[in-house]
Amino acid sequence: MNNFLARLWLLIRGPLQWRLLWLWNAKFMIGVTGVVRDEEGRVLLLRHRMWPPDRQWGCPTGYANRGEKFEDTVIREVREETGLHVKVGSLIHLKSGYRLRVEAAYEAAFIGGTLAIDPTEILEATWFSPHDLPQGLQESHRLLIQRTQP
């Protein structure tokens, strides 16, 4: 039976293989976070409206759009949530094992723009010293900030 399936697989090369793989495999949302620093080493943190009240502070974050590079997700999310422009650096975190989600986090450097938050998602945006982070910061984001200390 396995030989038959292997031969059949080879016969249906191309788009049909991709469609079958797509149907067979799990679909994931990709959560992407940016640890954004300015020239002074401060970290950009946002107080997110949709997050639990006791832990609303975190880095800019959002889900990747279909076909979007994760680095582009960081750039887009920072711009949408704050109006700021960033240059994306190294991948600092990649984690799977969630039911339908994968997480990726990147370092990013502030390169310009004027702070203008999106009030539908963000309540407040502030630059913080990595040594003086706010109460209510997501613990996973605190660890990302510590991991990227200059």
Rank of each mutant, 00 (worst) to 15 (best):
R76I: 08
T73F: 12
E39R: 14
D118I: 06
Q135L: 05
S140K: 15
N25D: 06
A108W: 04
P52Q: 02
R79H: 04
G97R: 10
G112V: 10
H93E: 07
I75M: 10
E80H: 09
L21Q: 11
H85S: 11
G58I: 00
H141E: 00
E121F: 15
N3T: 09
W24N: 06
A64I: 07
L16H: 02
D132F: 12
L5G: 12
L123Q: 05
R49F: 00
V86T: 13
I30M: 10
C59N: 13
E77T: 15
K27G: 10
F128I: 02
F4C: 04
Y63P: 00
E107G: 05
T61E: 12
R147K: 15
G34L: 08
L5E: 06
A109L: 10
Y106D: 13
E39G: 06
I117M: 02
R42V: 06
F28K: 13
L44P: 12
M50E: 01
I145C: 01
G112E: 07
P119K: 11
W18Y: 08
Q17D: 01
G112H: 13
F70H: 12
P130D: 08
L46T: 04
V35L: 12
N25Q: 07
I117T: 12
Q56N: 11
E39H: 12
D72F: 15
F110R: 01
R66K: 10
T82R: 02
R76P: 01
E139V: 09
L84C: 04
T120S: 05
E81D: 13
I145T: 06
V102M: 03
I12Y: 07
E68P: 02
E81W: 09
F70P: 04
G112F: 14
E124I: 09
E39A: 06
L115V: 02
Y63D: 00
L123R: 03
I122D: 10
L94Q: 14
G67W: 02
L94P: 08
E39T: 13
V78Y: 09
V102S: 00
L11F: 11
Y63Q: 05
A125W: 01
F28P: 01
G58V: 01
T82N: 12
N65D: 11
T114F: 00
